[in-house]
Design a protein around this nucleic acid. Structure first.
Lengths: 131, 131
DNA sequence: CTAAATGCAAAACCTTTGCCTCAAA
DNA sequence: TTTGAGGCAAAGGTTTTGCATTTAG
């Protein structure tokens, strides 16, 4: 509705990395220098609530955000901090099945793999699992 | 080595829930009222480093700890906040395989499922997946 | 015009750290 | 005694909030 909100939503949508709030703040400031940190926090909360963005927690103590959409998982390169996305149907199904086996309906999940690049794949920076 | 450290280690080992630092602090205080919060933080960090306890992050902004040992995953009941543990070999293998497919050696992972108890299982409070 | 959103600054939370004291070996 | 651990309180980093002001509809 407001211009700030559009700037922030657009910005997250255009980001193909996984910016934390401070990064979003800095990028938003370049577009509208009057935007405040508080607005970033309030807006990402609203956007998340609305299902427009998704919060990501890779365990470094601050929230990251990405555009919502095709749900994918994240593999964090422990040496570089790079986040690689992947999508795995078998995994999706398995999570669901496990929840059901335990008597639950799966309403959400959080998964991050932490890995170190194998020597044999050092040459390919963009190896992806089935996607 | 010190009495405080033993109290804390013992306490976490005896807890079958997943206490956060403040809870550990309160429980430890009952045993030794002179223990300080700083010591809890320093000690859990050391115990984690030593592989004696494991840090758990269920996304509520504070760290929880449990005794290390058989690695299991957690399913959080979104209605009650209860944490249910499960162990699933197929999942273990799949995570490893996905990392490898992406050219990584899996060095860690984090998984939580968030679920709502199915009506059909409302009677059983202790349903477990294969374990 | 009216309600909602923003900015600013203060506060709330969890966690870490400096420094001096105390305890273990 | 000597080194490491603990207590206390202050500081750090991230996120939230109160309140007055501005903006959208």
């Amino acid at each position: 509705m407001t211009s700030q909100r559009m700037v922030i939503a657009q910005l997250i949508h255009d980001s193909d990395d996984h910016p934390d709030v401070d990064t979003i703040y800095r990028r938003a400031s370049e577009i509208d220098s009057s935007i405040s940190l508080a607005t970033i926090y309030r807006t990402v909360a609203i956007l998340e609530e609305a299902g427009v963005v998704e919060k990501l927690d890779i365990g470094d103590g601050r929230a990251r955000y990405e555009a919502a959409g095709e749900h994918h998982e994240h593999l964090v390169d422990v040496d570089t901090g790079d986040i690689h996305e992947f999508h795995h149907l078998e995994l999706e199904a398995l999570k669901e099945r496990i929840a059901n086996e335990m008597g639950f309906e799966l309403v959400g999940h959080r998964l991050e793999l932490y890995g170190r690049r194998l020597a044999s794949s050092k040459t390919s920076k963009d190896t992806k699992a089935q996607d």
